[in-house]
């Protein structure tokens, strides 16, 4: 008969020596702790297991939407995570409008017409960086192990997460637009034009999100993801036509600004909101979105098989 002495540290067995010929067991008496907390029921578990119903495999869209639902539930339970999408855009908009307005355009009213679409783009693109840190936290907590062990279309957890983020981006867009409207922005394109601009922005933000998901799979900490993301975002956002017309810039900077995908996006969004045809900038923005998804989506899914 086997025995277990109930300790691994070599502690003495604190029981009086008895006339035992076999060992004294010190296994802790579990039944001694009655509690109000409900206990698991073995027969009910067996019954639950016996229900071997296996529904048909869900579609990629369905699982992505389910993961989007998860993102919304998280917003419901942790509403603080809307803080960045509400306060950040307001601060950015007020700051840059009143900081640069007089100097650049002679007046705040004059500047807001130029800046509003750009600051909208900037607010949303900056917020996309949080996608990376959120994913890293998920991975570290272990819940992604469960998702990755499910028989589902693999990218759906990430697609769903980005869909959930689209909700946050929409909130940020609406808030920024409203602040701009209060400052005096009256876009010629009207509500429809603004909505079209925001839609294009959301598409681009979704595509940019894959850059951060990739970063979060190759970097180990949320801090390092944020650091690298900042380094990527700085030249994209600030060396663009968001704040000023590039015509006053030196040639080398103009060269960059003119190829910067964010510049194309801003020009297209500006045109849509001003109610004029966005022309080739719309095509270029969408093309960049496709490239980002193709390149960083693939890289992400390649790393997703074996993340750090």
């Amino acid at each position: 008969m086997s025995t277990y002495t109930g300790n691994q540290e070599g502690e003495p067995i604190n029981e009086p020596a008895g006339p035992a010929t076999t060992a004294v067991s010190t296994a802790v008496d579990m039944s001694a702790a009655p509690s109000t907390e409900a206990a698991p029921q073995a027969d009910a578990i067996a019954q639950a297991l016996a229900n071997t119903e296996r529904p048909p495999r869900p579609s990629a869209l369905s699982t992505s939407v389910t993961f989007g639902w998860r993102a919304l539930l998280k917003i419901k339970h942790v509403p603080e995570q809307l803080f960045d999408v509400t306060v950040f855009p307001v601060v950015m908009t007020l700051l840059f409008t009143y900081l640069f307005g007089g100097a650049i355009a002679g007046s705040v009213d004059g500047y807001i017409a130029y800046l509003a679409p750009g600051i909208l783009v900037q607010s949303v693109l900056m917020i996309t960086m949080y996608t990376g840190t959120t994913l890293r936290t998920d991975i570290d907590k272990g819940v992604f192990d469960r998702f990755r062990s499910l028989p589902i279309w693999r990218p759906s957890a990430l697609v769903g997460m980005l869909l959930g983020d689209a909700v946050r981006f929409t909130v940020a867009s609406v808030i920024t637009a409203v602040v701009c409207w209060f400052i005096g922005w009256r876009p010629a394109g009207g509500i429809a034009g603004v909505a079209a601009g925001v839609l294009l922005l959301l598409i681009f933000a979704f595509a940019l999100g894959w850059v951060w998901t990739f970063l979060s799979l190759i970097l180990r900490t949320a801090g390092s993801i944020m650091g690298v993301a900042m380094m990527v975002m700085m030249p994209l956002v600030f060396a663009s036509n968001i704040f000023v017309d590039p015509s006053t810039m030196p040639g080398w900077l103009q060269a960059w600004v003119n190829v910067n995908p964010v510049s194309h996006l801003v020009t297209a969004v500006r045109a849509l909101m001003d109610g004029v045809s966005p022309g080739s900038d719309l095509t270029l923005s969408l093309m960049w979105a496709v490239i980002l998804v193709a390149v960083f989506g693939s890289l992400t899914m390649w790393k997703y098989r074996d993340p750090k």
């Binding site: 002495t5 067995i13 020596a17």
Partner: peptide, 12 residues
């Protein structure tokens, strides 16, 4: 003796 025990070896 304070105590003694005899058993199969533990997995430890």
């Amino acid at each position: 003796l304070a105590q003694f025990s005899l058993g199969q070896p533990t997995l430890d």
